[in-house]
Every structure is written in C-alpha cells, then in structure tokens.
Computed example of a mutant assay.
Amino acid sequence: MDNFINNIVSITILLFLLITFLQSGIDKIIDWKGNLGWLKEHFAATFMGNMVPLLLTIVLIIEMITAVCCVIGIYYLIADDSTCYAVLAMFLACITLLMLLFGQRIAKDYQGALTITCYFVVAIFGLYVVSL
C-alpha cells in the first residue's frame, strides 16, 4: 500500500494515458475504414496524403504499445516501486503525441494541434514526476 500512496501521482497520470491511448487504439481497430477515410481527406493537400495508411498503422502500433506499457508501469510502481516501465510509457506517450502534433500542424489543423498540446502537457509532467 505504501508504494501505491508514494506513486499516486504517477499512477493517476498513467491511468489517464492508458485510457487515452487504449481508447484511441481500439477506435482505430474497430473503425479502421472510417479513420482511414477521414485522415486521407484531412491530409489530402499535404505531402503525407499518400502515406496515410502506413502512418495510421504506425500510430496504432505505438498507441497500443504505450497502453501496454502504462499497465505494466502501474503494476511495477505498486508491486516493486520500480519506475522503468512508467518512464517508458510516459516517454512513448510524449513521442506519440509529438507525432500527432506534427501531423496536425502539417494539415494546418491548429485547433487539433492545441488539443494534442493539452495531452502533451499531462504526459511531459508525468515524465517529469516519475523521473524524480
């Protein structure tokens, strides 16, 4: 119980990131065609327009890996007070969000980029907290 209390901030942020990336990954799996169609249109006028299926696959894979690392990170924080997976999960979350931010900026979707920035602030704060 002491490990849980000592790591409550990190665990809460990992839960937030887990929900964020697991839901996003599941949505991509369940509605692949819908997501692909929307993104092809979203990036049609950019240099990334022809790469959307590949990029969507990459984002899906890293989102799911991040979600798994969040679960493992929570487990190790509670069971062993070990931060290795928590750091990895939060770092992957930051990388994923930077990839998404890059895409939104290329597509000139500045409102979407702003939304991603809010998630990034949480992830980078989590990375800072767990790295102390």
Rank of each mutant, 00 (worst) to 15 (best):
Asn6Lys: 11
Ile61Gln: 03
Asn50Tyr: 09
Cys69Ser: 14
Gly73Met: 02
Leu22Tyr: 15
Ser82Ala: 10
Phe16Leu: 09
Ile65Gly: 05
Leu77Trp: 01
Thr57Met: 08
Thr12Glu: 04
Leu15Thr: 15
Ile58Leu: 08
Trp32Gly: 00
Met48Ser: 08
Leu55Tyr: 09
Gly49Asp: 07
Pro53Ile: 00
Ile5Arg: 04
Leu36Ser: 10
Val52Glu: 00
Thr66Phe: 06
Ser82Val: 02
Ile5Thr: 05
Leu22Cys: 08
Thr57Cys: 06
Pro53Met: 00
Val52Leu: 10
Ile26Val: 14
His42Gly: 03
Ile26His: 13
Leu36Gln: 07
Ile29Gly: 03
Val9Ala: 05
Gly34Asn: 02
Asp27Ala: 06
Phe16Trp: 08
Lys40Asn: 08
Lys40Ala: 08
Asn3Arg: 03
Leu36Trp: 06
His42Asp: 01
Ala45Met: 05
Ile11Gly: 11
Gly34Val: 02
Asn35Glu: 02
Asp80Tyr: 04
Ile61Glu: 01
Ser10Glu: 07
Leu15Phe: 15
Leu17Asp: 15
Leu18Val: 08
Gly25Lys: 13
Met51Glu: 12
Asn35Asp: 02
Phe43Leu: 14
Ile74Asn: 01
Met64Ile: 06
Ala45Cys: 10
Trp32Lys: 14
Phe43Trp: 09
Asn35Ala: 06
Asp80His: 14
Val52Ala: 07
Ala79Ile: 03
Asn50Pro: 09
Asp81Trp: 05
Leu56Cys: 02
Cys69Lys: 03
Tyr76Trp: 02
Asn6Ile: 01
Ile30Phe: 07
Pro53Ala: 03
Leu60Lys: 13
Val52Phe: 14
Asp81Arg: 05
Asn7Cys: 02
Asp27Gln: 10
His42Phe: 09
Phe43Cys: 07
Ile5Trp: 05
Ile30Tyr: 11
Phe16Asp: 01
Met48Leu: 15
Leu54Val: 11
Thr66Val: 06
Val71Pro: 11
Thr12Leu: 13
Cys70Arg: 09
Ala79Arg: 12
Cys70Lys: 15
Tyr85Leu: 00
Asp80Met: 10
Gly25Arg: 15
Phe21Gln: 12
Ile78Trp: 07
Asp31Thr: 12
Trp32Asp: 01
Leu18Ser: 12
Phe21His: 11
Met64Ala: 13
